[in-house]
Design a protein around this nucleic acid. Structure first.
Length: 431
RNA sequence: GCGAGUGUAGCCAAGUGGUUAAGGCAGUGGUUUGUGGUACCACCAUUCGCGGGUUCGAUCCCCGUCAUUCGCCCCA
């Protein structure tokens, strides 16, 4: 009572866990770097209209999951529920397409959706994603997928399944949509409630309903793939052929329909079997209509987003509870004001020389400080008591061998190179 | 938004309608005065998520609420 806790659906990322985050970010940065993707950092909030138009009014994300509020200037503002709309807005606003006709962009950061939290699903969560804007080639679809699989592979994640589908272009979909409605309408009474609701609003989503009755009906429904134009079909075949060339395994899932309206042609998801209900680790696809929908000139694009929390869930399963934390190489114990002051100087000098130095500030008995020194994992303990401080000396205790010597602080600072050398050797022996 | 489960110290947990709420880890202080990893001793929840109700009395029963978990939905 009285204490303030993190809001529902939000979490603190604590030191035990943050190592995983840094690792994910480092690997993403490196893979993107090698593929010459540049990072962009759009704002966290935007005009509500951007998302309404970009993602689609009929989608659940826009319809009931956005954090929307009115600011003090009476503008309707929304915390981004995804990145793509903002990135595309920035692309148009800064005329990035004029500088270079193909733009490769990546991003990472928090996004917000008002949903019921559960494992792998929070209200504030984090995405890492890529957008390749300006190429209509199926090679672009494949490049983007390859970058995603590289990241996942470098993270060491296993048991992932790539599913792909084509949702065609606008006119393919209009034709298919009509056919689907025609097929489903006679069965309307047998569909689950949600699907009945979607029949006119967003019939394609009925395809991946999990309701068994609906699934049974949908079994015999016309297939979207049969309604693709020749060009769309060719595009999809090219994507498949190139994935095969790259040795990227995939499964065609003709029911894969993503919940954001802007997708065209290729849609894909990468799922894990180890995540329970929230199995999608990465999702994306082509969105050739979005740039023009948001007021830019017609520009094709593909992209995807990964859920960082879900990646980390998998990493934790894979490697045990805590991420590795940094440990000290040198642990400094001291007693008395004078010794502590000298210790500060030593610690800083050693740190500036590139060593990881932990200074025990507890003021506790030496016994306690040594105990902590031992637990810290440091190889060397520097001892500064009142007598050392008096004489300008410092004790060097090698914790593994118990070897202990003394030298003047000045000498120690003068021979940092040999000290570093010895610490490095020590670390090697420990393996 | 709907359904079900859970909620005891920093962590893992036992427990009962009735004077002092097990235990383990971690932490703190000791086992002679400035030297670690072991062992031993002591200390560490006026309190059992929060609020209300039932009761002579509730951590244990009931209601509400918040959080969390698992489904649905949706998505990353």
């Amino acid at each position: 009572m009285g204490t303030i806790k993190a809001l529902r659906g939000t979490r603190d990322i604590l030191p035990e866990e943050v190592g995983y985050w840094q690792q994910v970010e480092a690997i993403a940065r490196s893979v993107f770097g090698n593929a010459l993707y540049s990072e962009v950092r759009p704002p966290i909030f935007e005009q509500t209209e951007l998302f309404a138009r970009g993602i689609g009014e009929a989608t659940d994300v826009v319809g009931k999951e956005m954090y929307t509020f009115t600011d003090r200037g009476d503008r309707s503002i929304t915390l981004r529920p995804e990145f793509t709309a903002g990135v595309v807005r920035a692309f148009i606003e800064h005329k990035l397409g004029a500088k270079r006709n193909v733009q490769r962009l990546w991003y990472a950061g928090p996004v917000f959706r008002y949903e019921r939290p559960q494992a792998g699903r929070q209200r504030q969560f984090h995405q890492i994603g890529a957008e390749l804007i300006g190429s209509e080639s199926p090679a672009a679809d494949v490049e983007v997928i390859a970058v995603a699989t590289d990241i996942l592979q470098q993270l060491g994640l296993k048991s992932l399944q790539l599913e792909i589908n084509s949702v065609g272009n606008q006119s393919d979909r209009t034709a298919y949509r009509a056919a689907l409605i025609e097929f489903l309408t006679p069965h309307k009474a047998d569909l689950d409630a949600d699907s009945q609701d979607r029949l006119t609003r967003n019939p394609l989503r009925i395809l991946d309903s999990k309701d068994p009755n609906t699934q049974a009906i949908v079994q015999d429904a016309p297939q979207l793939l049969d309604y693709l134009s020749d060009a769309s079909r060719h595009h999809f075949e090219q994507v498949q052929a190139m994935l095969t060339t790259l040795g990227i395994e995939y499964r065609i899932n003709p029911r894969l329909v993503r919940g954001l309206d802007y997708y065209t042609h290729t849609a894909f998801e990468i799922q894990s079997t180890d995540l329970g209900a929230q199995a999608t680790v990465c999702g994306g696809g082509r969105y050739d209509g979005l740039v023009s929908e948001l007021g830019g000139s017609a520009t094709p694009a593909v992209g995807w987003a990964m859920g960082v929390e879900r990646l980390i869930l998998l990493l934790e399963q894979l490697r045990g509870e805590d991420a590795p934390m940094a440990w000290a190489q040198v642990y400094l114990v001291s007693q008395g004001d004078r010794a502590t002051a000298q210790g500060m100087k030593l610690a800083q000098a050693l740190r500036q020389a590139g060593l990881r130095v932990e200074f025990d500030l507890s003021g506790a008995a030496f016994k306690k400080q040594f105990k902590r020194a031992d637990r810290s994992g440091a190889s060397l303990c520097l001892v500064l008591g009142a007598s050392e401080a008096e004489a300008g000396m410092v004790g060097l205790k090698w914790l593994k061998t118990q070897e202990q010597t003394q030298q003047s602080q000045a000498d120690l600072l003068g021979s940092l190179a040999t000290l570093k050398q010895r610490l490095a050797e020590d670390a090697m022996e420990q393996g």
